[in-house]
Write a protein that binds this DNA or RNA. Structure first.
Lengths: 123, 123
DNA sequence: ACCTTTTTTAGAATGTTTCTAAAATTATTA
DNA sequence: TAATAATTTTAGAAACATTCTAAAAAAGGT
């Protein structure tokens, strides 16, 4: 792992906030003021390809990067707010159906977060 | 529902191929040569907000639109190819955990499709 | 030290999606 | 039905995220 790859990996694996490339870049700049956004993307892609990090695509927002430790997500359908949840582990069940022939899975539960419920006027 | 909203809804609900906005636009143009891509986006957003269609965000590809009928997806981690699968229904299970307070969920299973396996040289 | 490979940089380019303001259409009301 | 209001569509610009390209810098190997 190169310097930046390691740094970016550390940022993601110690964060619980599903950072965007831009946010990672901002964090990295504090320590390495000369680093460039393309470097962040390069290393994110490399880390993702090698399964060191997860990549989350939420409809209508930039991609977010996450630690690989098994957990699921709940997403507000109105504002896109993303939080961690831990739902039952489906690995074995999926393995059974696909005869081990899968890498990972991604479960997203959609809801309306309390703030957006207020906005919508549905208490 | 307006004319285009209805047309777009029909295209999506009769298709099993997870169309992009661009693809829907191309289909629509055959019947309405003057329609414009922004109209497609407007109506897709409206349909999505009102829960008439699903929206699928796959890492590194344009959003895709899908019928709401319950089913899941399997995605090739290398090329992004998307196919329908039907995994056990998790609705009740999630309902139990979230006390009915959720709208829907989205399960994506990642794998390497046969073509990409060949490319990678892993038969 | 020299050559090779990999990584980073800088900035342009690409692709998707949203935005804006005007025009067209549809619905409402008098 | 004419007048007005509200909604939808258009056209094109703009925004935003991400990738690409070529050169420079850094790291690795002999």
């Amino acid at each position: 792992m190169t310097k930046y790859e390691k740094e970016i990996y550390d940022i993601i694996s110690h964060s619980y906030s599903h950072l965007t490339a831009e946010q990672i870049y901002e964090i990295l700049k504090k320590k390495f003021p000369n680093v460039v956004l393309a470097t962040v993307y390069n290393n994110l892609n490399k880390l993702y390809k090698n399964d060191f990090i997860r990549k989350l695509s939420i409809e209508g927002m930039p991609d977010r990067y996450d630690r690989t430790e098994r957990h699921d997500h709940i997403v507000c359908r109105d504002c896109g707010k993303l939080s961690d949840i831990k739902f039952e582990d489906l690995t074995d069940s999926i393995k059974r159906q696909f005869k081990n022939d899968f890498l990972s899975y991604d479960l997203k539960v959609f809801y309306i977060c309390p703030e957006c419920k207020k906005k919508r006027g549905m208490e």
